[in-house]
């Protein structure tokens, strides 16, 4: 089991400052994919919900179920009233197309800047509600929440346009500087996600002896599940050394799955 932080960014313009800041190197061009040594990956998804959906599924397929995946959609957004360069973490994402809403969990305490985000199919120029507008977040969240626990999925937006500063006046250099202005906060969110992910990793980590037993003894799928729980129980009950003793025992090589499970069970059967 490994951990991965997946950053999904719609445009290369938005991605460039992040790639530099996080020390990411390119590993693929179609789609553009960047990674670093800390388990952070960045994919440039392209604009719109369909692209965001595809990018999430592409990344998920790279690891299958072998990784605890955290997800962060980063990008610029419009807003009716927020000032340019202000940031927000979405606490509610509404699809304008369907009216459906999804709710990222407010579990990242460092950044107390939350807001509602509406995902639209065309750039929003009227800003009818006092919310942020983007073009990817809803599909991103829906796709990621089919793969990962919802607490590890978030959307970070930097306000790039509002009623006074239309999206049509946005130039590439402005996008770059907006992204650069938020790098510190993005780093904070990534760090919090990594911390949460680390917790989940620790909770789900199998005792190392399990691998050893799986290599030494042939077990059915059911027996593998039983063995995992037995190893966890030995650790939980402070009987780790007994488990370790068994891995060193010659007797193990002559055991089949049933005998191994039976032996481990019998030692746990006494009062605890």
């Amino acid at each position: 089991m490994t951990t991965k932080i997946n950053l999904v960014v719609a445009h290369t313009l938005e991605a460039r400052p992040l790639i530099k800041y996080l020390g990411l190197r390119q590993t693929a061009t179609t789609p553009p994919l960047y990674v670093n040594e800390d388990g952070i990956r960045l994919i440039v998804s392209g604009e719109g919900q369909h692209c965001a959906w595809q990018a999430v599924n592409y990344l998920a397929e790279l690891d299958g179920t072998a990784a605890i995946q955290a997800w962060l959609n980063i990008g610029i957004a419009g807003h009716q009233s927020m000032n340019i360069a202000q940031i927000l973490l979405a606490n509610k994402i509404v699809s304008r197309r369907s009216g459906e809403a999804v709710f990222p969990t407010l579990i990242l305490p460092a950044l107390q800047k939350f807001g509602e985000l509406h995902t639209v199919d065309e750039p929003e120029r009227q800003y009818p509600e006092n919310v942020a507008y983007d073009m990817e977040a809803f599909a991103f969240f829906k796709a990621a929440s089919a793969i990962s626990t919802v607490e590890l999925i978030h959307c970070f937006k930097i306000i790039s346009d509002n009623k006074q500063n239309s999206v049509d006046t946005l130039i590439p250099a402005r996008v770059k500087s907006l992204m650069e202005s938020a790098l510190g906060e993005i780093r904070e969110v990534v760090a919090e996600l990594q911390q949460l992910q680390g917790q989940v990793y620790q909770w789900q980590q199998s005792p190392p002896e399990l691998e050893f037993f799986l290599d030494e003894v042939h077990l059915t799928v059911t027996q593998q599940t039983q063995l995992l729980r037995l190893c966890q129980r030995y650790y939980a009950l402070g009987m780790k050394s007994e488990l370790q003793k068994l891995t060193c025992s010659r007797i193990l090589t002559s055991m089949d799955g049933r005998e191994l499970i039976g032996r481990l069970q019998s030692k746990l059967a006494g009062p605890q």
Binding site: N91, K92, A101, F103, T105, L106, I107, P109, F114, E116, S145, A146, S148, T149, V150, E151, L196, Q199, V200, W203
Partner: peptide
Amino acid sequence: PQISIDQYGELFNRNRQNFRMQKQL
């Protein structure tokens, strides 16, 4: 922060939540 919802089940009963993680906050 106050967030509007239609019905509590859309939040409370959804899939892929981690009770233990949520319990922290």
